[in-house]
């Protein structure tokens, strides 16, 4: 009598998905890594030291996983949320009070905080093991951009609930852009940019205006931050992550003593 497991594993459906027997022996443990799209991010074998939890803290992996959690919960949140001044706050209220499994927003918010923390810890680990040294210099640079994008993701998302916490945090943060040298209307040198006596940099044309889409945090800002938060920045992160992971492999796998 074949067991149920055997029946499933010998079925045509199963075999069409997994083109090899279960990874219980050496050969098939190699094959699984080579034939599975998701697993082939990894090499087939690696030095014990490099994959030790106490060496990498799995922090890059944890950050990536949190990014996935954010993507999934974020898409679900988008089902309930309309980025307009009339609806944004009300939709969040509904989400809190009237949605089943009402921890969606919590998962997304705490996941974002956690991701900021884990990306710092990941950078901390990479620094402490000196893993930015040749040949991994450029992957560190990509990492720094990822760090920046992670912070910007968190920052743009902060505005979306449209409560007091949100607009004032974004107001404080974006006020800085007003002082950008040359490009902010209260920034050093901005007065020098004039054409025929007319100021080029005003509070309706400076860096802060570009960020907010208005002279203060309002309707346009909400729209702008929504698009940045849900589309532009995640796409950027996804692209850079692909490069980041690719480079980990191409730079010789996880670092270790030469």
């Amino acid at each position: 009598m074949p067991s149920l497991g055997d029946i499933i594993r010998n079925s045509q459906i199963w075999k069409s998905i997994f083109r090899h027997p279960a990874p219980v022996d050496r050969r098939n443990r190699i094959v699984v890594m080579l034939t599975n799209f998701f697993l082939h991010l990894h090499p087939v074998s690696a030095k014990k030291q490099g994959i030790a939890l106490s060496y990498t803290w799995c922090m890059g992996g944890v950050t990536f996983f949190l990014f996935l959690v954010e993507t999934v919960t974020g898409v679900l949140l988008m089902f309930y949320y309309r980025p307009t001044i009339e609806w944004a706050y009300a939709d969040i209220l509904t989400l809190r009070d009237a949605t089943s499994l009402g921890i969606l927003r919590e998962l997304h918010r705490w996941g974002a905080h956690a991701m900021v923390i884990t990306v710092w810890l990941h950078m901390y680990r990479v620094f402490l093991t000196g893993s930015y040294k040749p040949p991994r210099e450029f992957n560190w640079v990509i990492g720094v951009i990822l760090l920046l994008l992670t912070l910007l993701l968190s920052f743009t998302g902060y505005l979306l609930p449209w409560d007091q916490l949100a607009i004032w945090a974004i107001t404080v943060g974006s006020n800085m852009a007003r002082a950008t040298p040359f490009l902010g209307y209260e920034g050093p040198g901005a007065q020098l940019l004039t054409v025929g006596g007319i100021d080029m940099i005003t509070n309706a044309s400076d860096a802060r205006f570009g960020l907010l889409g208005a002279r203060f945090v309002g309707e346009e800002t909400l729209n702008r931050f929504y698009v940045l938060h849900c589309i532009a920045i995640p796409l950027g992160v996804a692209l850079l992550l692909a490069v980041h992971f690719w480079r980990v492999r191409k730079d010789g796998g996880i670092s270790g003593p030469m």
Binding site: R29, K47, K48, A52, G256
Partner: peptide, 15 residues
């Protein structure tokens, strides 16, 4: 520590 081990199961399970 420098010994090579298979990523399945050693790393995949950790993850």
């Amino acid at each position: 520590e420098r010994e090579k081990v298979l990523v399945w199961p050693d790393l995949v399970y950790t993850e």
